[in-house]
Amino acid sequence: MNEFFAQLVASLPSNLRILVEAPIFNVQLILDGLLIGAIFALAAYGMALVWGVMKIINIAQGEFVMLGGYVAVIFAQNGIHPLLAVPVSGAVLFLVGWLLYRAVIFRIVEEDLFVSILATFGISILLQQLMNQVFGGDVQIADAGLGTRFLFSGFVTVSDVKLVSFVLALALGGVLVAFLRNSRLGQSIRATAQNARAARVLGIDTGRVYAATYGLNAAICGSAGALVAMAYTIHPYIGLPYTVRSFMIVVVAGLGNLAGVIAAGIGLGAAENMAGFLLGAQYQLAFVFGLLVVVLLWRNWRLKRKRQYLK
């Protein structure tokens, strides 16, 4: 541990100097962070949806991402372009989410938050082991066969597949907002989120709304997963980082605030990448957790001030 700390102290100033003397690398880091941040934001938005509507913290979030990734892998292995897997994995995962709701989740909707965490944690382990049995523990990728483009006379590189996944992630977010705002089901979902009892009184079948919400969340994650398999790598145990970051983003942005979720997601991606560069990759995830603590403290402090003001 001491060795790590000494190394950190030794390398931080020199890493910082690179960024000051060659600022172009800031652009590279932030760009890479923005691109993965959009995918984090998608998964986080799904989590916020389920949390807000059903009062469930879905620990299996990352596993839905992983499942979606495997759909893209299957596509690529059978010679179908993995970009086509983005909508298909959404559809497949909607079904998975719906079935999981009918089998397990409906029992825990009205229960304590702790029960929902335990149950979805169980689901996440189940899905991990299942995929390990089916596909083995090895890393998989879905090669989209796109190139790399150079910016700033070659100093900054951006792979096309990351760019495409960024655009698709934003588009998907947009579609989702329009859906929730305008469609009948979207309105029912929002009504249920506001007041489930009142929604039931007004004739909304909240059971169906819950099932659709959970399915929708799985679908978003599934599509995000297809993008992950194309731009990064997946394996059965890749889920946890996505769950953790989703949680972090939702805590920062709050429920029912898409703009906030996207901003927090992209910001987290960029901040994390900068931290990875400056502190070393070993502190990248530690940085995420550290940030979470800071945000919670700050919120607590702000709330306290508010209360005093009201007094």
Binding site: I36, I234, I238, L240, P241, N273, G276, G280, Q282, Q284
Partner: peptide, 14 residues
């Protein structure tokens, strides 16, 4: 001398 976390699937910073 970077140490990669166990769940890492993105080495962009390094």
């Amino acid at each position: 001398d970077d140490q990669l976390p166990k769940e890492l699937n993105d080495m962009a910073a390094t």
